[in-house]
Every structure is written in structure tokens, then in C-alpha cells.
Design a protein around this nucleic acid. Sequence first.
DNA 1: CCACATTGGGTAGTGGCACTATCTATGTTA
DNA 2: TAACATAGATAGTGCCACTACCCAATGTGG
Lengths: 206, 206
Amino acid sequence: MRISELSRRSGVPTATIKYYLREGLLPPGRAIAATQAEYDETHLRRLRLVRALIGLRGLSVSATKEILGAAAAHAGERHQVLGLVVGARPADEDAPPPAPAPGAAEVDALIDGLGWEVSAHAPARAVLGETLETLRSLGEEVSADALRGYAALAERTAALDLDQLDPDADPLDQAESALLRTILFEPALLALRRLAQENESARRNT
Amino acid sequence: MRISELSRRSGVPTATIKYYLREGLLPPGRAIAATQAEYDETHLRRLRLVRALIGLRGLSVSATKEILGAAAAHAGERHQVLGLVVGARPADEDAPPPAPAPGAAEVDALIDGLGWEVSAHAPARAVLGETLETLRSLGEEVSADALRGYAALAERTAALDLDQLDPDADPLDQAESALLRTILFEPALLALRRLAQENESARRNT
DNA sequence: CCACATTGGGTAGTGGCACTATCTATGTTA
DNA sequence: TAACATAGATAGTGCCACTACCCAATGTGG
């Protein structure tokens, strides 16, 4: 199909599709001639995926590009992919000094205590540490106990996530599926929590 | 204290503080004279809070304003506050036609099935519906079973959230605390999930 | 009491981002 | 062959979160 059909079927203006092509979010079509290129269903799917990540999940164009790149590059090592997607850094094997991240000690203690096996440079560690520090600075201490409670629930959430992957799919599809279900599902998880909070609050206050 | 001290203690440039004042994110200081105003600790705290919502959680200035406004307005009805903070709409009592939201039926069925008591116009409903629809359109079906699983975990997360509120605090403080722990803690919850996924994935793929 | 830095308040400018519009030299199609 | 579509490139737009500057009015050290 040509670009206009891609646009019509996806609802994305051709100017925007060209922009995504320039930014490398979408692989170029098969060039037929100097002013003609052919796109297929994979382009359409990719375009819908990009739109979902940007529009629904609210990622920036550059973050979207990094994530899609990471998914393709690490298709063989699925559990690596999942760790990458927050900060989406290739995790420079030889990182600079561990960087004196705030709250890192607390996070390390939690992860150690749980016996979790996660890479030392997972961006999620820093996110967690910063959040806890910030909450503390605002007078909202999250106790180690509560934190362990949240971690236990996260563990079960993760198990549910992985249960839904098709073990027979090929590694690349599986990586993309994991990525979608991890990142795109995040707003849904937060929404469920909000709904559950409202319900629980109503229940407790009769 | 004057604006320069507020700036020094918070690390936020005075120009930015003035901008927040203009935008209504920060209440004006007590006017001493035509060119002098006095700020206190509550301003400092509010400023730190605003920075956390914008910088850490990634909210826009306008969303931050709406949320802080909602918290103050509904201090008396805590469980209402929690429902508002996603879309942060005052939920026009008489909304327009329910709006034919995509995936609404599925969400309604889920909530009914769980026996949850949540308002019909909670923005989280729409978020959940759209996410499920989008995932489906990308070939990633989330089964009703899996959804119930996630909901059950969200229920326990919400219980943990509410357990941490101080029932002796005054309603306004309690509302702000709930808001902080709901919104600011979101990145931490997602980070925990990422970490748990990495761990679980490593565990399963020995 | 006065030179001078500071302040509140306002307006205008900046840089980044995600598009969007336009142009040109080709191609395709009726 | 004339109307229309396309690739590729460049420039422009609108929004947002600041940021810089200006002014008149203070406050303040000498």
C-alpha cells in the first residue's frame, strides 16, 4: 500500500507519518521508484503501536523510539527487555561510578531482603529511590513494612503478566508482546488502583 | 521569608516561583507593602509538592493546579478526592450523555462483577476501557480472568494505601496525604512492577 | 538620608517538542 | 496528456514551561 492508504487505515495524517519515518519510529517502505514506496501490514501495525505509546501512554517520540529499538535489539533475552523500558538506557556495561542516587540504600535493602534478582543498573531502582526520598521530604514516610507489602503485590502482578505470554511465540513477537503488556497496560493498572481506592474508601466509611 | 529565601530553600528560581504564583499553583504571600510580600513554611511545602508533581510524576502545570484545587475543595469527602485525580474533572453532576466510550461495557461488567462501588463518571473507567480496547486492537487480548486477577491485586494495593492514612489527622491534611500517596507513589508502583518482572523472568528462565 | 540592591508585578522572549504545511521533482492513472 | 499522488526536504506553527527583562516602589547599610 502507499502512504495515503496507510494514513487512511490508521487515521494518522501523512505529514505525521513522514515525520515518524524521519525520526526512525517507522521503518522506511520498500522503495519502488524515486517518488514511490510500498508499505505493508507490519507498517500499519507498527504505526498503531507508536500511536498507542505516544497518545495513550504519553511517551515522548524519543522515548518511544528507544523502547522500540530496545525491544528489537534484545528480543532474545526477554527478561532484559522488561528492565530497560523505563529509562530505556542500554545500561552501559561499564557504567560510570554507581552515581550517588538518593534513597538507593533503602531500595537495595528492600530488593536484597526480598531476594530479588535484578540488575544493579535497572532504572527502576532510581525511580523508586527518588520517589521514596521525595515522599519522605514531604513528610509522608513509607515504612519498610508497607514497602514490602507493595513489593509482594508487585511480585504477584508480575507473575500474572508473565503468565499471559505465549511461550510458543517466537522470541521477537514475545518481546514485543511483553513490552506492550508492560508499558501499555500501566495506565490500566493505575486506573484499577484508583477505582479500588474509591471502592475501598466507600466501604470503610460505610 | 521573602521570595529570594523561598527560592534558596527550595532550589526553584524566583522567576519560576513568580510563574507558579501567576498560574495559581502557589497562593500569594501576605502583602506587606506594594513591593513586599511575606511567605511562610506552608508556601515552601507547597512549592516542594508542586515540583514533585511536575518533575517526578510528570504532571503538567494545569493538571497540577486542578489536582491541588480538587484536594482543597473536597477535603471533607476523602474517597471522592481519590477518584478525581486522574482526569481531575469536577465530574459535572449532570454530565452530557454518558459518551459512547470504547470498552465501557467491559469495564462496567468487571466493576459490577467485583461488586465495586465507584461513581459512574470516574475518569479511571474511561482510561481502563481505552487501554483494553487499544491492546485488543494490537492483538493483545487481556482475558476477563486476567483482568479480575489484576483487579484483586489492585484491591489489596488500595487497602494498603488506605491503611497508611492517619485517621486522627484533620480532613484537609488527610486529603493531601492521600493525594500524595496516590499520585506521587505511582511511579514507585510501576518501578516495583518492572523490578518484579525482571526478577520473575530471571526465576522462570533459570 | 541616600545610594543601592531587592522586590512585586507585568510583559516579552526562549527552547523544546510534536507536529503541519509547502515545495519540487518525479510517478501514476484516467 | 492532464490531473493527481508521492518521496524527500525545509520551514513554519502552536503549545508549554519556563526565563529574562523592565519598572516603580521599597528596604537598608553607611
